[in-house]
């Protein structure tokens, strides 16, 4: 019987993470292509083997081939990895949906919610495509570190064992990433989106010149808020102790490479959000995610003080120092009450 197409996988999105995935795959000997929106980016990748916009200073492997023909590329690949930001996710998913069929595996790597609807990315994939074999790939994977060749780990979560096996198989030849499997799609998506909010808070703490005590307090209580949101959405609380929970929080909150961390840090030093976002070529997912989570928390009656503080700093011009001080004066109770007695 004829196998679908000539590719093993298609990466949709030539941003920093899409390029990092391509770099990992280039070491495995898999046949793959990278779909990018802009013709000039495709030409640059194919001819000069660089992606100056999203992977500045890195030489890409010659085996990385970029295309701008989404329809044709989707039809050739049994598996598709989506690496596009949440704000354009639905639009790209719909375009993928025009060509995809039910036998194909579709996995996204986007860490965010749709702001207007608070929908998870896998829900959007379900709505915009016919495929059911959907999954999410997440974990502490800073694109810059992957490009630099450092070892890393990730989780692929799906209701379908076939999806998990497929993605694990794709990266099996790479000695630089360990891909674990899991079935908690909701938890994995909630954790990987939520951690960006805490990264903003951690950046603010660093920007204020606070030390590691403060940051640890923010991260740990942030983890608690993350788990509260996740459990309310139907996630398994243990997921938050894994790579996509604690793992990603440690990485993104500590690293100066994290875009969200950078936004938080610059806000604390007095820059405005508008100026910061304008100066960045890459997307800081934590900003729209904060808005989406804050709206959800209000409608679901969830108590998320750190999210509330970050929201007010981002969108209501609240003062960073005052917000942290307010957090410190909130009443204290049993540390794990919100999770233990659920």
């Amino acid at each position: 019987m004829k196998k679908r197409g000539d590719l093993d996988v298609l990466i949709v999105g030539g941003g920093s993470f899409g390029t990092a995935l391509a770099t990992l795959l280039s070491e495995t000997g898999r046949a793959f292509e990278l779909w990018v929106r802009r013709k000039e980016t495709a030409e640059e990748i194919n001819k000069r083997h660089t992606n100056s916009r999203y992977a500045k200073g890195h030489k890409l492997a010659a085996s990385i081939r970029a295309t701008t023909n989404l329809d044709e590329a989707v039809k050739r690949a049994p598996a598709i990895l989506m690496a596009v930001p949440s704000r354009s996710f639905r639009e790209v998913a719909r375009a993928v949906g025009d060509s995809i069929q039910g036998d194909q595996v579709l996995v996204h790597t986007t860490k965010g919610f749709e702001i207007e609807t608070f929908k998870r990315m896998s829900t959007i994939l379900r709505e915009e495509t016919c495929t059911l074999k959907i999954g999410v790939f997440a974990g502490p994977n800073l694109a810059g570190e992957i490009m630099a060749g450092h070892p890393a780990g990730a989780t692929v979560a799906s209701h379908y064992d076939e999806v998990i096996r497929t993605v694990q198989g794709l990266f099996a030849g790479s000695g630089r990433i360990r891909v674990y499997g899991g079935h908690d799609v909701v938890g994995t998506e909630a954790a990987s989106a939520f951690k960006n909010i805490i990264a903003l808070a951690a950046g603010m703490s660093d920007g204020m010149g606070f030390g590691d005590n403060t940051k640890s307090l923010l991260i740990t209580r942030g983890l608690s808020e993350m788990a509260r949101v996740g459990v309310a959405l139907g996630a398994d609380v243990f997921t938050f102790s894994g790579l996509t929970g604690v793992g990603d929080l440690m990485c993104t909150c500590a690293s100066s490479l994290s875009r969200n961390h950078q936004v938080g840090e610059r806000l604390a030093t007095g820059e405005t959000l508008e100026d910061i976002l304008e100066s960045m070529t890459q997307v800081a997912e934590g900003v729209p995610t904060t808005k989406a989570v804050q709206r959800y928390a209000e409608s679901a009656g969830l108590d998320l003080p750190i999210v509330g503080a970050v929201y007010r700093i981002l969108f209501e011009q609240a003062d960073v120092a005052k917000s942290i001080e307010q957090l410190m004066h909130l009443p204290v109770g049993d540390e794990l009450a919100a999770l233990r007695y659920r």
């Binding site: 019987m1 004829k2 679908r4 949906g97 025009d98 069929q101 039910g102 194909q104 016919c130 059911l132």
Partner: peptide, 18 residues
């Protein structure tokens, strides 16, 4: 599908064409 596009339903259970 949700968007009203026609879906080849046999594809859901096909692996390597069968």
């Amino acid at each position: 599908d949700h968007r009203g596009r026609i879906v080849d339903r046999t594809s859901y259970v096909r692996r390597n064409g069968a």
